[in-house]
Design a protein around this nucleic acid. Structure first.
Lengths: 332, 332
DNA sequence: TTGTATGCGTTATCAC
DNA sequence: GTGATAACGCATACAA
């Protein structure tokens, strides 16, 4: 391995001068700088990140912990985070938490072990971070789902507002028997509950009564679960003319389930999702959805970790992502 | 930051003993070991990976370079690689190359700069790695697409065999006017060309003539490109009763494009893809496809880098992934 | 079984 | 402007 020592010898300077050139510090003469750069080129020298890290205490890597990179939504998000982090000079290491509280706590511990400078955590289950006091003071940004009451930097989805807008849209299209396919309501701060509130608020505003038979809870937000839910909803015999799906991924499954049962979208049932994953524009029929600005979210999240790395004691900040309703064929 | 020194002081031993406990080496008394473990727990000590790396010369991280983590296929693949690497004690850092040769060469250089122990490169464009001799001897495994004639460890897709099987399947269902929606044929070793060969071989075997009007080349393998291709193919007025899509992602677009033009699948046109991404089972109609064993591929790739890290001079190995034909509604 | 000395490649500090 | 020296936290080699 080529070290600064080697470069220094080659250029006839001390290794400190090489360090100064490598890090673009001033106080190095133009002539010497040229000699050093040439020596670097010739020798194929690369800085040893471990040594630099050991010395400076920073790795230049931020972690991104998501439930499952395979779910289109998180792949989508990861792409934006990687891009935004790159612009700020950070690399991104991805962890998968498996949508379990244990995995999420692990990811935090793990992130510290690997000495990531910070962590962006897309938490869906971890609702009591208080129980992990050892992690206090670590640059941690919550992204997307949960709400921790101002205790963390947080970039939130427009859960309630978005779902309310989606439900209202169905009502305005004439739907009166609107079902919601949602997740388990484990407590009152998580994404699922927020979206459910939005649904209820919209119904109330439009004077539509709530029928508990039209609320369908899923164990996980997968396509398969959505498909099954749709089938059972139809099989139950209750009349339905609209479905609000908790995510686009679930909506893809619902779309398929309705087809399994011979119902046409939007003629028999209108359907709307949440997330605007790329696939949604290409289904048959194409899927109406709530489209939060993912790029904006990723940028805010990276910005927040970067800020917290620089200023660990800064007060926490909370953002809610902007969104728009994208109307496609499934609610025409 | 808590160091071994601190733990040693707390446990009343030397830091060397702490090191031995942490690394599970024997030669430490049971009593002392307990004391040390307790001290570690109390102090919240975590090993400093940078220091260890600096000393050992290894980072425990392997890079995974893919064109775009946002494409379902690569997200899918990444999930498997992360899992397989975890089992071998490696972490994975993901790089996006943007499907450009420059990005792919960069990924290699970058990987070395960050001192990853090795790199799994899912190359789609880089066809002349010879031009990068500086990278010789670096543990590099090619995954998926290209073929480098035995110069690298390589886990290949069953490009030719799979596409041939897909095309044959369409023929056996009675199709005689089979189109292929493929990528640019830039040279004779890449994925696109291999798949095209498979298509031609199947037609020849079934005695079906090749009509150049039925070969449609895409600039990129996106859903949007697939949709446009389907529309133009239909608008061209040539009769078509089957379509082989170069990837499932493209097939999703083709499915949508056919719907745009009012053609029914499979009644008017049968359609088959390649990859078996999760979405394929949930489209309407569901998509028949060539399903390579992604888990198997990820495991082989990780195994190969791990081996090469241990034995840099071992002769290269080539694998072709097994596959099966998954028949769904789009070719019924 | 445990402790001591030394060095990995880099950067901060301070002297020249 | 440039260079010498001392850390950063850990693990190897060897001494006790």
């Amino acid at each position: 391995m080529v070290t600064m020592e080697d470069v220094a010898r080659l250029a006839g300077v001390s290794k400190m001068t090489v360090s100064n050139v490598v890090n673009n510090r001033d106080g190095v003469g133009d002539l010497v700088r040229q000699r050093v750069l040439e020596a670097i080129r010739q020798s194929g020298y690369r800085v040893n990140v471990s040594a630099r890290t050991l010395r400076s205490g920073r790795t230049g890597v931020i972690g991104l912990a998501v439930p499952d990179i395979e779910l289109p939504y998180f792949g989508h998000l990861a792409a934006h985070v990687i891009e935004a982090a790159g612009r700020q000079g950070f690399h991104v290491a991805i962890e998968q938490t498996g949508a379990a509280a244990a995995g999420e706590a692990d990811a935090i511990a793990h992130s510290r072990t690997l000495h990531f400078d910070g962590l962006i955590l897309s938490a869906v289950e971890l609702d009591r971070l208080d129980e992990h006091p050892a992690e206090a003071g670590y640059p941690l940004v919550m992204l997307g789902e949960q709400d921790f009451g101002g205790r963390f930097d947080h970039v939130a989805m427009p859960n309630e507002e978005g779902t309310k807008a989606a439900t209202t849209h169905l009502a305005d299209r004439g739907c009166r028997r609107i079902a919601i396919v949602t997740g388990r309501a484990s407590d009152d701060v998580n994404m699922v509950t927020r979206r459910h509130y939005g649904y209820l608020a919209a119904l109330a505003e439009r004077g539509i009564g709530v029928d508990p038979a039209l609320v369908f809870s899923l164990d996980d937000a997968s396509m398969e679960a959505g498909r099954e839910a749709a089938c059972r909803l139809v099989d139950s015999g209750h009349e339905i003319d609209g479905v609000v799906a908790v995510t686009d991924t679930v909506a893809l499954g619902v779309l398929r389930g309705l087809a399994d049962r011979g119902l046409r979208v939007p003629e028999d049932v209108r359907l709307i999702g949440f997330d605007d994953i790329p696939e949604s524009g290409f289904t048959v029929p194409s899927l109406s959805t709530v489209a939060p600005d993912h790029r904006w979210m990723a940028e805010r999240a990276v910005e927040l970790v970067a800020q917290r790395i620089r200023a660990p004691l800064r007060p926490t900040a909370q953002y809610v992502a902007p969104f728009e309703l994208v109307i496609r064929e499934s609610t025409r």
